[in-house]
């Protein structure tokens, strides 16, 4: 019984997290953040400008 409750809670937590990533974060964005955290990639920001002061 205890094991079933634990597995159920775990599944619920995983599901709600996956739904959050799907709806609010985006899997691509999450992957990018992990790559930055692990040092595989660097954070990047494109900055536009005109050749005027």
């Amino acid at each position: 019984m205890k094991f079933k409750v634990f597995v159920g809670a775990l599944m619920w937590a995983l599901s709600i997290s996956a739904l959050h990533v799907q709806l609010n974060v985006g899997w691509g964005s999450l992957g990018q953040r992990f790559k930055v955290m692990l040092g595989i990639e660097r954070q990047e920001l494109l900055v536009g400008f005109l050749p005027v002061t």
């Binding site: 954070q43 990047e44 494109l46 900055v47 536009g48 400008f49 005109l50």
Partner: peptide, 30 residues
């Protein structure tokens, strides 16, 4: 700190505006 800031040159303001609106660039001098 290892972040990458890449400057992207534009030649007119209208294109800068469009790029910003469509998030092709994250920031801009306008």
């Amino acid at each position: 700190t290892g972040s990458v800031f890449t400057a992207r040159k534009f030649t007119d303001w209208a294109t800068v505006k469009e790029a910003l609106m469509s998030k092709k660039i994250g920031a801009s001098f306008i």
